[in-house]
Design a protein around this nucleic acid. Structure first.
Lengths: 165, 165
DNA sequence: TTTAGCGATGTAATGTTGTAACGTGCATCA
DNA sequence: TGATGCACGTTACAACATTACATCGCTAAA
């Protein structure tokens, strides 16, 4: 009477569900296109912040980003400004906030919107993500069944990654 | 080839899976028993902090708790002390940290350990939780499949609750 | 060509959340 | 009675986030 875990289901999905995993310049281009598509401007500041964010493979705090962008520009950029732009990125799906790390990470496939599941290593801090729409849809369904609307799932898993284990 | 959402599955579980939902004095007793069981002391300070935490129906920040406990005792209790005890509560499963709110909430059924899914209303801040072991096990399985160990899922859903919707 | 409006960014201050380091009091037990 | 261990106190600070307001540059209407 209790469903088995969905391991087999998500393997099938991972195989079935292909989308572009951008990196480097390709990613920046995709990000720019997405922002413009959303009616927003792709400014130097936004470009720099996205570039810095994209270099991280672990979630980056707004302050980390502020420091690096400051270096890059030879002029102090206040956390404030970074937050503004990160918020924009999050709302336009160019970046994600990792709640359990108070930090942000670039979305490697902007334009393609779905909930994703982050895996964050407690040792090395690196984050990967997996896309399992069946699973995230189930979480949404459960929340909606409980009377929630305008649902935004936050699904993160802390643990030890394969390298650190 | 893609599993349907598990709405029906979790309904079955909610019906099948009964455990005590404590409240008030009963909850405090259960908390005390659990702490002692874990080889820890149930001190006045811990009792006060748990009592204050349990009065909230929305996640409470360590600072909120510090203020109320300070009032209750007529003497300033530093956030520091509150954090120490909250950490203890979290490790002993008397309380949970709500990552997306940087806050804590009493576990209404300590002793019964499983991952739970929090629903937090963006309007009124109230939090409820649902227990869907099939779903949380699936999340665990997905993370483990990706090579993660010592997995600790963080599953929270932000949205509008039925009252605020 | 001014100038009013608007969006993006700068600046400063402040608020909130979380930790580190070290000291004190108190119980237990050799 | 002195050593040990644990709980808690105190202070300082680090990290994360927001608010309010100023400035800059572009563009569109006067």
């Amino acid at each position: 009477m209790i469903d088995p875990p969905h391991a087999s289901a998500y393997i099938a999905i991972m195989a079935a569900h292909h989308h572009h995993e951008h990196a480097g310049a390709s990613l920046a281009q995709a990000a720019e296109a997405t922002l413009v598509e959303a009616g927003e401007q792709w400014t130097d500041m936004r470009s720099d912040i996205f570039a810095v964010l994209a270099t991280f493979e672990k979630p980056a705090s707004a302050y980390d980003i502020a420091d690096l962008v400051s270096q890059r520009r030879g002029k102090r950029v206040a956390p404030n400004s970074v937050y503004r732009i990160l918020d924009l990125f999050v709302t336009t799906n160019l970046a994600r906030r990792v709640e359990s790390a108070n930090a942000y990470i670039a979305n490697s496939h902007p334009g393609c919107l779905h909930d994703c599941i982050f895996l964050i290593c407690d040792s090395c801090g690196t984050a990967t993500h997996i896309d399992d729409d069946a699973l995230t849809m189930s979480v949404r369904a459960a929340a909606e069944h409980a009377g929630f609307a305008q649902v935004r799932p936050v699904i993160e898993v802390r643990g030890k990654c394969a390298d650190c284990d």
